[in-house]
Simulated assay, not measured.
Amino acid sequence: MTEITTLNLQRVLNDLFEKGTAYHTLRGIHNAAKMIFNYAKEVGVIGVNPVEAVFVPKKKLTLEETNGEDVSKLYLETDELKVFLNTVDAHRNIMNRTLIYTIAFTGMRPGEAIALKYEDIDLEKKSIRINKTTYAKKSLRGDFDLTPPKTISSIRTVDIDDIIVEKLKELFHYRVIREWIVSDYVFGNIDGIPPTVKSLNQTVRRLGEKTL
């Protein structure tokens, strides 16, 4: 274990990716490896977790493939994501910033993120339980139902990085000091109501255009 490097692990994921392994399977492998090496670090076997700098590869779509696609389905390369997130950092709405970061770092669907409630998040264990999504009726804020994900396999718990933990804490603190309306929803805005997937997609598009 002490001889395994970040490059070794990255090559393994890249090789599986080239062989057609599904993205969610790669995410599972990445999460499992991260937990194993975190434990090794905690008991003193290693000093640094080599998985921290490993990324899960995604398919880069062509313009033809993305034509007409919903922005939530588009994948960005690592460098492109960094540029995009720099633009997100300058966005004035802290709720939107935190929501976009959470989606980008966890791979969850926009509807799943919007449906998150405080009870779904464990900042101590650094995990998020995903067991529902939103079903919008008329694309109006607040006019939605909470429904189970499309498949049983979509019900899952994902690990979150320290950066997401800190951004969530910042959002929660901001909500209190600004006296926003109390809401069960993690991404409830000043009035306690979360955005629609449509409005989130529009925000992402506008931010994306600024990076061109």
Rank of each mutant, 00 (worst) to 15 (best):
K59D: 13
K59H: 11
L63P: 06
N67E: 15
V71D: 01
K73V: 01
Y75F: 11
L76S: 05
L76A: 07
T78W: 13
L81F: 11
K82D: 12
K82N: 10
K82Q: 14
V83K: 15
L85F: 07
L85V: 06
L85W: 08
L85G: 07
T87R: 11
V88L: 09
H91S: 08
H91Q: 09
H91C: 09
R92T: 10
N93L: 02
N93R: 08
M95G: 00
N96W: 11
N96I: 12
L99V: 02
L99H: 01
A104Q: 03
A104T: 08
F105D: 08
F105M: 12
T106G: 09
G107Y: 06
G107A: 04
M108L: 13
G111H: 03
I114T: 01
A115H: 00
A115N: 02
A115S: 06
K117F: 02
K117N: 10
E119Y: 00
D122K: 05
L123V: 05
L123W: 03
K126Y: 05
K126P: 01
R129E: 13
N131G: 14
K132F: 00
K132P: 07
T134R: 12
Y135W: 15
A136C: 06
A136L: 15
K137L: 15
K138D: 15
K138M: 11
G142I: 03
F144T: 01
D145Y: 11
P149L: 06
K150L: 07
K150P: 03
K150W: 10
K150N: 09
T151A: 09
I152C: 00
R156M: 06
V158C: 08
V158N: 04
D159P: 09
I163F: 12
V165I: 07
E166P: 00
L168C: 04
K169I: 05
K169D: 07
F172C: 01
F172H: 09
H173Y: 14
E179S: 14
E179M: 12
Y185R: 00
Y185E: 05
V186H: 05
F187Y: 05
